[in-house]
Design a protein around this nucleic acid. Structure first.
Length: 769
DNA sequence: CCTCTGGGTATTTTT
DNA sequence: TACCCAGAGG
């Protein structure tokens, strides 16, 4: 039993939030105000002081990362016990409920979870089946509409009834068939996990009663990002006697409106769970006063929301700076210089984050940092389990776990290529649908297969595949998951084919397969007796950020969305330009604009000590040069803040003089303007005594091959001889790992050429020994 | 059935 | 720039 001195560890408001344990409570927790602390201490308080049994507590988060952190911190506070509170994401919690209670209500209890790429496969098959085309919008837009319907708990029938326009009718019809297809495949998509659980709780009183009796205390994190179905879930779970719901959120950090999250549920909560105690946490423990001042100014201009004003005891601090670069390369150069200064001052790369609006913005930093030896790491983008090779191999597992999973079968059946194309797949799948067969119900008898209308040649290719799958199924009963993985990789010749291909991408894919082996092993160690389906569920519900820890010393780069909940000593916010932030696609309505503003606010409030904002006058974007003006979020700030910001502008070209990049700047006079818009283009390139060469042509990386994790193992060693098409033979004298997946090779050529530095991934060099 | 090519297009993505 | 997709041709 751990003894906790509550007063010493919490401020008065936090203590109120922790100890106010009766009825509904809404905590409005400003950025950096100790939200997670309050959540975990409240759980500990319930257990220690109120003798609540841990297993009657349920805490819901949005990310696995938050859930894992909370679990750990709760264990720190209450010690390891026989029973623990349930802590999980909305999706994992609901998946769990469906697995445990679904069957008793006539729902599926063994199901596969489809991620968005699998949803897309389903949707495209629906269009094919309906013999229509996804117009006037792209397939993803239809998925978005379907997701909207599910988020509002509308079944296809309701959407069909409500549909007025032709397009709405089309969406409803597609939704109908899409849903039918999912059910046929024993599959749920992410939205289904929530909506089906709501249906279960609504329509099946026994389950509802069991759960309500079990979980008397419910805590919900990030309440501002809750969508209608998640809100409905919380309402259904609320025990009507105790109504002990604890919600924490910050409407100023609601950034998932485009996924139907709505901060206004914080209002609904106050009405529907009345009486609700409301507590505001406004003391910020993260940032310095100057940073908070900027944050408060940013958010002050919002058109809707609960008013709060963050304050801090960290009175002194560096004034945030603004730097306007000539172009995106100069922006990268400026940030690189600042990073080096930070290191000269004794700081670490891992103190630093670069947070941008769009993933595409990472490019210029990747390139500049690689060339200048700044290690970096990109979080997000393509997720590990979304990679082509990982999906390919896992599709076999998914078929083994659920042989009705058509989307995975679709992939596995012709990966690697077996000469079974779309036409034949259609025939096979139609046959399966009509007879309600799973893969292992298919006959391996030649005559029957021929009667499906398949060509002789196809049958001769299909039978070996079916036999292979039967073999895998037999093996799956005998082998450990990781051994089955090796077996499948071997028998499908997947790795072998990559080895033959022997390109940079192929090698990266092989590395990823090895990482997958690692993931299997660690799952096996942590959960020795979990089934294959449970492993696959685990895999379906994780993301890049979940495993993110500041372990390696590199600069972190990610989108503003991904950065929510994190903090860094030094934060760079590049691209503070109109059309980037606010994004050109999100500036049409006040709601959209508000959300962009909150994104900026999230970015600002990630910084503990140093905040540097930058923008570029001109940048190469999607192959063309564009000119942006400075973001309105900066220019609308009061003049004294702008004067206070350490503003610098570099000139790009001579013709920039007459362009006003601050059209909506509140200025007093030209003279005054000069005082804070200081032109400064004398920054030298990064000091480097070695010429840096990166061959752009070789750098084409396919989306599904792009490896984001640092690749420490170089294929080279110091002393290796190499050959370069232009410079001839050389010897490697130094290897510097940089972020991304690259290493930085210093190569000594002949005396005339001297030493040169190459990117291992991009340079056209060949190993000679 | 598979691969190549040209044209159109372009946020964010907790699960 | 980098992708996705449709259609042509092997």
């Amino acid at each position: 039993m751990v003894l906790i001195n509550w007063e010493d560890n919490l401020n008065q408001t936090q203590l109120d939030a922790v100890s106010n344990t009766d009825g509904a409570l809404l905590v409005i927790a400003g950025a950096g105000s100790g939200k997670t602390r309050v959540l975990t201490y409240r759980v500990a308080y319930l257990i220690h002081e109120k003798n609540v049994s841990p297993e009657s507590i349920m805490a819901i988060t949005f990310t696995n990362k938050a859930a894992n952190e909370m679990k750990e911190r709760i264990i720190d506070l209450v010690g390891k016990r026989r029973y623990h509170p349930w802590v999980g994401t909305f999706h994992r919690t609901c998946a769990n409920i469906l697995r445990n209670y679904g069957a008793s209500a006539g729902l599926l209890d063994s199901f596969t979870i489809f991620d968005d790429s699998e949803q897309l496969v389903v949707l495209k098959r629906v269009f094919k089946k309906l013999d229509t085309v996804p117009e006037p919008f792209k397939p993803r837009y239809y998925l978005h509409m379907i997701s909207g319907a599910k988020s509002h708990l509308k079944p296809p029938e309701q959407l069909e009834e409500e549909a007025k326009t032709t397009f709405e009718k089309k969406v409803a019809n597609v939704y109908h068939h899409y849903q039918e297809s999912l059910r046929e495949q024993n599959a749920y998509d992410f939205d289904d996990l929530i909506s089906e659980t709501c249906m279960l709780l609504q329509n099946h009183k026994p389950t509802r009663d069991i759960l309500r009796n079990q979980y008397k205390y419910i805590l919900v994190d990030e309440f501002q990002d809750i969508n209608p179905s998640q809100y409905a879930f919380i309402k259904l779970m609320a025990n009507p006697e105790t109504r002990n719901i604890f919600a924490v959120g910050d409407d100023d950090q609601s950034i998932y409106g485009w996924r139907y999250a709505d901060p206004k549920f914080m209002d609904n909560f106050q009405e529907e769970f009345a009486p609700v105690t409301i507590i505001k946490l406004e003391e910020n423990y993260r940032s310095t006063a100057p940073i908070l001042r900027v944050a408060n100014e940013v958010i002050k201009n919002k058109s809707w929301g609960i008013t709060k004003k963050l304050h801090t005891r960290k009175r002194s601090g560096l004034m945030p700076s603004f730097y306007m670069a000539g172009d995106e390369n100069k922006e990268a150069r400026y940030i690189a210089r600042q990073i080096n200064k930070h290191l000269d001052d004794g700081g670490n790369y891992s103190d630093i984050a670069i947070l941008y609006r769009m993933n595409a913005q990472s490019r210029s930093f990747e390139e500049y940092f690689s060339m200048n030896g700044i290690p970096f790491r990109i979080i997000g983008g393509l997720r590990f389990y979304q990679r082509m090779e990982i999906k390919d191999i896992l599709s076999y597992f998914r078929v083994l776990a659920n042989h009705h999973d058509r989307s995975s079968l679709d992939r596995a059946i012709n990966t690697p290529k077996r000469g079974i194309g779309d036409k034949s797949k259609d025939r096979i799948f139609n046959f399966m649908s009509q007879n309600r067969l799973g893969l292992f119900d298919l006959p391996t008898n030649e005559d029957i297969l021929l009667s499906m209308g398949l060509q002789n040649a196809i049958v001769n290719r299909l039978i070996p595949f079916l036999e292979l799958m039967h073999e895998f199924r037999d093996k799956s009963k005998k082998l450990k998951h990781v051994d089955l993985l090796s077996w499948i990789i071997k028998r499908t010749k997947y790795e072998e084919l990559l080895e033959i291909e022997d390109t940079i991408e192929a090698r990266a894919r092989i590395d990823n397969l090895n990482e997958l082996r690692g993931a299997f092993l660690s799952f096996q160690d942590n959960f020795p007796d979990r089934s294959l389906s449970e492993f696959l569920e685990h895999v379906a519900l994780v993301s890049d950020i979940d495993s993110y820890e500041k372990t390696d010393d590199s600069v972190t780069m990610m989108t503003l969305h991904t950065a929510k909940g994190l903090e860094f000593d030094t934060v760079f916010l590049p691209g503070l330009e109109e059309k980037f932030l606010p994004h050109s696609r999100s500036q049409d309505t006040p709601d959209e604009l508000d959300e962009e503003r909150r994104l900026f606010y999230v970015g600002v409030t990630r910084a503990k000590n140093v905040l540097r904002i930058t923008s570029a006058k001109r940048r190469l974007f999607r192959g063309v040069y564009i000119n942006h003006t400075v973001s309105r979020f900066l220019t609308e700030m009061p003049l004294d803040i702008i004067n206070g910001l350490d503003m610098t502008i570099t000139q790009h070209g001579k013709d920039d003089e007459d362009t006003n990049h601050f059209p909506n700047f509140k200025r007093e006079s030209k003279a005054k303007q000069k005082s804070f818009l200081d032109f400064d283009d004398d920054i030298e390139p990064m000091p480097s005594d070695e010429e840096v060469i990166v061959t752009r042509d070789e750098s084409k990386q396919q989306k599904h091959g792009k490896q984001r994790k640092p690749q420490l193992a170089s294929q080279y060693k110091v002393g290796n001889k190499i050959s370069h098409p232009k410079f001839g033979q050389g010897e490697i004298v130094r290897i510097n790992p940089v972020g991304g997946d690259d290493n930085f090779l210093t190569i000594q050529f002949d005396d005339k050429t001297g030493k040169k530095v190459f990117s291992e991934q991009k340079a056209p060099i060949e190993k000679l020994d």
